[in-house]
Computed example of a mutant assay.
Amino acid sequence: MAGVGWFTKLYGAGPAHLLAVVGCFALTTYSVVLIWGEPQVVRMAVWFAAAVVVHDLVLLPVCSLADRALAASLRSAPKARVPIVNHIRSPVLAAGLLFLVFFPGIVQQGTATHLAATGQDQQVYLGRWLALSGTFVAVSAVVYVLRSVIALRRSRSHNPSSVDEST
């Protein structure tokens, strides 16, 4: 797309990026218009602002420090054929996001309201979150083992002298 080079140079990204940003702003505007007349709009705005502050000032620095500590501890470990860091990050991120989304149900906050609204209690949230988190870890471990086996087989097929010939 040589014809949009001037646009990319001026804007800093391609036209698809601008279209996506405009679409996000349109969706946000539509959402605000929908909830503007609600009596709880101020409460929702306070919750949104608090979420932004907590994310930027608490969660992001804590996650960044934990990730740096993980990367530093893995740097001192023997070099593996397949890096393990993303196989640790992925299930932890998935479990953490699920915990944030379902936190009120997991800690059984608002039990009476939840029961009145759905007719069900919140007893299952903690167990299901733990089961999903365990599944994320197990799937990530299986993928890591499979990738390691494939990498080992590839290295042996490309370098036959590394195969043990003592048998």
Rank of each mutant, 00 (worst) to 15 (best):
I150H: 13
V54I: 07
S140P: 01
A51E: 08
R147T: 01
A45P: 00
L146S: 08
P61S: 08
R147E: 06
V53L: 14
V137G: 01
L98K: 00
A141H: 03
A77W: 14
V32W: 11
Q108F: 05
Y125Q: 01
F102W: 04
K79V: 07
I106Y: 02
L34Q: 14
R75E: 13
A69Q: 07
D121M: 08
L65R: 04
L130Q: 11
P15K: 10
Q122H: 06
A117T: 10
S76T: 07
S73M: 07
V22P: 02
S76F: 08
L65V: 03
L93E: 03
Q122M: 10
Q122F: 06
S64M: 13
F25W: 15
H114M: 10
S148I: 04
L130W: 08
A116T: 05
L115G: 08
V42K: 09
A94N: 02
V46W: 15
A131R: 09
R75Q: 13
L98P: 01
L130F: 10
R68D: 12
G23E: 04
T113C: 10
S90P: 01
T135L: 13
H87E: 02
S140E: 05
Q120Y: 13
A66H: 09
A141V: 03
L130C: 12
V58A: 09
L100C: 06
P91G: 05
W36S: 13
V52K: 05
A71V: 09
R89K: 14
F102V: 00
A138G: 09
V143E: 01
